[in-house]
Design a protein around this nucleic acid. Structure first.
Lengths: 233, 233
DNA sequence: CCGCCACTTTGCGCGAGCGCAAGTTTCCGG
DNA sequence: CCGGAAACTTGCGCTCGCGCAAAGTGGCGG
């Protein structure tokens, strides 16, 4: 196994505040792994053998119902931890993680979490802060699903993706990974048909520009209006 | 301030595994507080000065949208921690906590969390396990809201409340605190009208029995059927 | 370079559940 | 014991978004 360099993780949120020497120690028990686009990094219900930090790419976290319907729980961006079942006292993964593009991840054995978080308390603090934010996000989503129309929810979802992964282009801000109408539907509790209709309408109004697995937001401000008001702006 | 007895918290999940002497130390920095029915224990957006353990009663955790709509995030039962913003790196409460009945709580200053969780690692482990479960629950709810009809969601909500707080009576299992149609609506993303209609229909079918602020489940099994199948059983 | 498949678009009809409105019951405070 | 407000019930019409169906379109693999 090649020695991993501390520069890989220096500056990443989970390791914020650690010394170079400490980073090296943390890295010494990590493996680096690659996953091809659409490959599963871990599967729902499987034993949680590892936890991960995403070094490069994007990861889609998906829950599947007993009836086979899928819901996208969230997207993971570079520098985020994921699959941290161990830190939360679980022994199995509650969802499936799929590489949305070719990805590079670091993996630690779950069994190492207690030792690691004890030796480097900052890692624990940073991780639990992340968990707190995700709990927040999840509740926000419950509130949205309870109180908003589909149009508002889709607008909110796009705005969140733009904020999280937006890449400036000459046409507007583009979501930085391939995303289908079906994906957006699974994030918002709508059908791909309704999402397609909404995107078409917004394209008409020059708010977005979209194509096969691509979405570009041209006018974020007007999209915010869609997200906030019930009537048609 | 009266000295608090270790028997108050011995055996509660957050303090699982601690020695009597340790319990005493933990208690020494706690205050005991009472809240009358419908009183606010803390408010959304307010500075998170304390975190809490519920000794007696039930607490309703509510999020309010900018538009003034309310969503019930969860109910807290005896022995659960709540208001743990500090442990998740937040400085304000993300929701409002209301005593659903007269309540007794223990409160610790938020500033004490780092010290407390460092001195008694088990408290941290237990608390983060709870957080993990709540994150799970929140995601489960998102999935339900995305994939289920209102009838199924209401059935699921009732079953969860029965499991969490059910009290056996001669008529069936009763939800152990006053709960209105409006409350159930705010848990499920429905209107109180629809909830009322559902409860009436179920009363007709002798699945539940309900009155002013009361719900009794007479036939949990048939309610499970309602929760699981799309058509009318 | 071309064929195919995954992805997308669009039309049409319908039904779950909301919004509104009016009336009833229950409980609590005085 | 009584008055009023809070909680609950029920009816009716409408609309948002789904379900189904069918026809485009772009891009990748062979």
């Amino acid at each position: 196994m090649p020695k991993l360099d501390t520069s890989l993780i220096a500056g990443l949120p989970p390791f914020e505040g650690l010394q170079r020497e400490e980073l090296a120690q943390v890295l010494s028990s990590a493996r680096s792994l690659r996953f091809a686009r659409e490959a599963a990094i871990f599967e729902q219900e499987a034993e949680a053998h590892s936890f991960f930090v995403l070094l490069d790419g994007y990861v889609r976290v998906v829950r599947t119902t007993p009836e086979g319907e899928q819901v996208i729980v969230r997207y993971i961006s570079e520098g985020e931890v994921f699959g941290i079942a161990a830190a939360l006292g679980r022994t199995t993964y509650p969802a499936t993680a799929i590489a949305a593009v070719d990805c590079v991840v670091l993996a630690w054995p779950s069994a190492l979490w207690p030792e690691l978080s004890a030796r480097f308390p900052l890692i624990g603090v940073n991780t639990y802060k992340t968990v707190g934010n995700r709990l927040q996000d999840a509740h926000t989503r419950v509130v949205e699903m309870s109180t908003e129309q589909v149009e508002q929810r889709v607008a909110h979802a796009l705005l969140r993706l733009v904020r999280q992964t937006g890449r400036q282009t000459d046409e507007g801000i583009e979501i930085d990974f391939p995303i289908t109408r079906q994906d957006i539907a699974e994030m918002t509790g709508a059908t791909l048909h309704t999402v397609s209709r909404l995107l078409s309408a917004w394209e008409e109004q020059e708010i977005v520009r979209s194509g096969r697995k691509r979405v570009i937001v041209r006018d974020p401000h007007r999209l915010v209006l869609k997200a906030e008001s019930r009537e048609d702006g």
